[in-house]
């Protein structure tokens, strides 16, 4: 079997793998292993890690809550301007995250279009809050979910939904009991991408939510600032972030694979 592997595919595949894995190896090689336990015990590190996991998870939930219905709208209904809307959804992907953060400030900031009203009406101000971190992460990560779920919906057979309707299922029941289970793999894949993107989010977060330990300083922000003075600490923090995300994703994958 090994003699039959097509080199035209295998060679670029290995090159691609090396390209993705070598920077990780670089981090591992340069990691200050002797001081690592002490650095990990620093309360700021755990605080940033906790904040990162919590905000990325909440951001993913927000994306699921809003993104799945949005994907459904794009895939299953026809309305004028749908193409334009689909193009607009990819904006956060294209936009440099810092610009995304500025854009969020212009809308949700204290003097922003909506933020002004939020502040005046409810006394709510989102920048510099943990909620602001979630918003920045959700903004940047949502396209991954929407695109993935819309793809699943488009490749799925809409006739299952018709069959459900003929059995007396309302549109909501159809969505809940037929559509959603059928696109579950796509939703999960999208949620994973979304979570990973939210976990690594830096630019929009620091711009919109600022950087304050315990409130808005997520791991990527801590890594960046550590880089200013202590590159070794930055390596440690990056490794922690990587290790935790890999463990979580691998753990989840085990579960799905065994379930599906």
């Amino acid at each position: 079997m090994s003699g039959r592997l097509p080199w035209l595919l295998l060679a670029p595949a290995l090159a691609g793998m090396a390209f993705l894995v070598l920077p990780l190896a670089g981090l591992l090689v340069r990691a200050p292993w002797s001081t690592l336990p002490a650095r990990l015990a620093e309360p700021q590190v755990l605080e940033a890690l906790r904040l990162s996991l919590v905000t990325a998870t909440i951001a993913t939930l927000v994306c699921l809550l809003l993104g799945v219905p949005l994907a459904w709208l794009l895939a299953r209904t026809a309305f004028p301007g749908r193409r334009l809307l689909r193009a607009l959804i990819t904006v956060p992907l294209v936009l440099p995250p810092v610009v995304g953060g500025v854009a969020l400030l212009l809308v949700l900031g204290r003097r922003g279009l909506v933020g002004q009203w939020l502040d005046a009406t409810f006394g709510v101000s989102l920048p510099f809050t943990t909620a602001g971190v979630v918003i920045a992460e959700a903004f940047v990560a949502m396209p991954f979910l929407v695109i993935s779920v819309e793809g699943a919906l488009r490749t799925g057979d809409p006739r299952f939904e018709e069959a459900a309707a003929t059995l007396g299922a309302s549109r909501w029941t159809v969505f809940r009991r037929v559509t959603l289970p059928l696109i579950a793999p796509g939703v999960l894949a999208g949620a994973v991408l979304c979570w990973a993107r939210a976990l690594g989010e830096f630019g929009a977060t620091i711009t919109f939510a600022g950087n304050f330990p315990g409130t808005t300083q997520t791991m990527p922000l801590a890594v960046y600032l550590a880089l200013e003075t202590e590159p070794e600490a930055a390596v440690v923090l990056s490794l922690v972030l990587l290790a935790v995300s890999v463990i979580i994703l691998a753990g989840l994958r085990e579960r799905w694979v065994s379930r599906i």
């Binding site: 057979d157 006739r159 018709e162 069959a163 309707a165 299922a169």
Partner: peptide
Amino acid sequence: PPEHRPIGVVFQDYLLF
């Protein structure tokens, strides 16, 4: 609408969920 019609449909490739 389809969900309120007293009908039963057997589809060509059955479309079992």
